[in-house]
Nucleic acid binder design. Structure first.
Lengths: 240, 240
DNA sequence: CGTGTGGTTGAGCCGGTTCAAAGTGAGTGG
DNA sequence: CCACTCACTTTGAACCGGCTCAACCACACG
């Protein structure tokens, strides 16, 4: 078995079945590096609403998201909030090197993290170019998604925004849906979060969802569970 | 003189006074690497409106912006456009590794580029971790700016958008303005570009600018030249 | 000059917000 | 098991910020 071989090669027990090793940043590490890093790693659970790191408290260090969804957001002084990114497993959470940016990360569902001290990660980055390469690739992916969202925020109508959002969620929660033409999933976000993601109000989000339902493009079975019988028909409403 | 020493160390003549070497990606290279790369480099000029690379044509390779301003934008099928990033010297232009993203880069002013073939850059990235580190840092900076813009697009009023935009431009064109409290600059963008950056129409941009002028927060001397006597008063209108 | 391109200003409209009220459903305690 | 609560969602009605459409202005260029 391949897994046993890997184990023999010195992969820490906790990492063997970890998604971060298969698809996340830990995949860039040699077994001995992984062993070193895993000495400092701590498994953490956080429930919905838990702040994982914030503008003020920069001590949060870094983590791999093992399960759940995390939102990155910025809040203006008068309380207006904008979600500027959503992170799914096995994304890496945390901003290497300093940044003046006041961004908050918060769990939107139950979340399991593999948390690492900042110093250990930064040391490992310095000595492992392939780790830095992996992180660079993630930041480029985040940049692509950020630009996608900018188009949505700046130039799409409310209806197009909600359709785009549903497609984005489907892509993340059910990657295989590309091949098939239908999908179903549980929305990990509340209406409030969706509104903060799309630059809308909860009322508008709600209205657009019921409109998609009336047009038979989606079925809403219980507020969070959505069925999309025909992804192409949904995509046709996304505007791009 | 330091410059002479560097020259003795084998820095190519064309690179000696180049900003990309002092503050851009070339600063991460050893003289011999720089010499190698500069063999393939071509100085290019582009005038306003010139497409530097596009969704379809991915052959454009990479370049350093030596002077001028470049916009990155995406256009929806019906013509709606959103600018998703502005790049200033000595930024690096081009998306390493593949991306499904259909983003276009276009000169918004006269632009001078130091253009490099894609293969040469990717080879150099592979063998120089410090180069990749430099590029990673730029992508993190772009990500910070992208998120800043998302807040602007999603949650700010037209007046706040325009004020935020002016502050961003001041920061890039006159970095020393932080220390002083006033500044003046030539807007590198047309009203149309500003509108596409802020998710507004040209009319709204124009109205907000005249409103800032009426409030004596800015002076508009000739459509593009703006004077900001008191940056703090402008910042107070930016919303955050 | 006329022509064209980019910018400004005005009037009316509309998509999305605001404010208000009612609906839904999970959790809790009697 | 039901009644009660609380958080979230939906729906309705009125309002308003930014858009649309249209006219005019400024200035560069032939």
């Amino acid at each position: 078995m391949q897994q046993q071989e890997l184990y023999k090669c010195g992969v820490p027990a906790a990492c063997i079945f970890c998604d971060a090793r298969r698809r996340g940043m830990c995949g860039a590490l040699e077994p001995h590096q992984l062993a070193k890093l895993s000495k400092y790693s701590v498994r953490k659970n956080a429930s919905s609403g838990k702040e994982l790191y914030s503008a003020t408290d920069r001590t949060g260090g870094f983590s791999n998201i093992l399960s759940g969804v995390v939102k990155l957001s910025r809040t203006l002084s008068d309380g207006r909030q904008q979600i500027v990114g959503l992170q799914f497993p096995p994304d890496f959470l945390g901003r290497p090197f300093k940044s003046g940016n006041a961004i908050t990360a918060e769990a939107v569902t139950e979340v399991v993290l593999c948390s690492l001290p900042q110093a250990a990660v930064e040391r490992m980055i310095a000595e492992s170019p392939s780790l830095e390469h992996r992180l660079y690739e993630q930041s480029l992916r985040e940049l692509d998604e950020a630009r996608e969202l900018m188009v949505t925020l700046g130039r799409k109508t409310a209806a197009e925004k909600v359709a785009s959002f549903l497609i984005m969620i489907a892509r993340h929660l059910d990657p295989a849906s590309q091949e098939r033409k239908s999908t179903a999933f549980d929305l990990p976000l509340t209406r409030m979060d969706i509104a903060d993601y799309l630059g809308l109000t909860i009322e508008t989000v709600s209205r657009q969802l019921t409109q998609l339902r009336s047009a038979n493009i989606i079925q809403i079975v219980n507020k969070h569970h959505i069925i999309v019988p025909n992804l192409a028909r949904l995509a046709a409403r996304a505007g791009d």
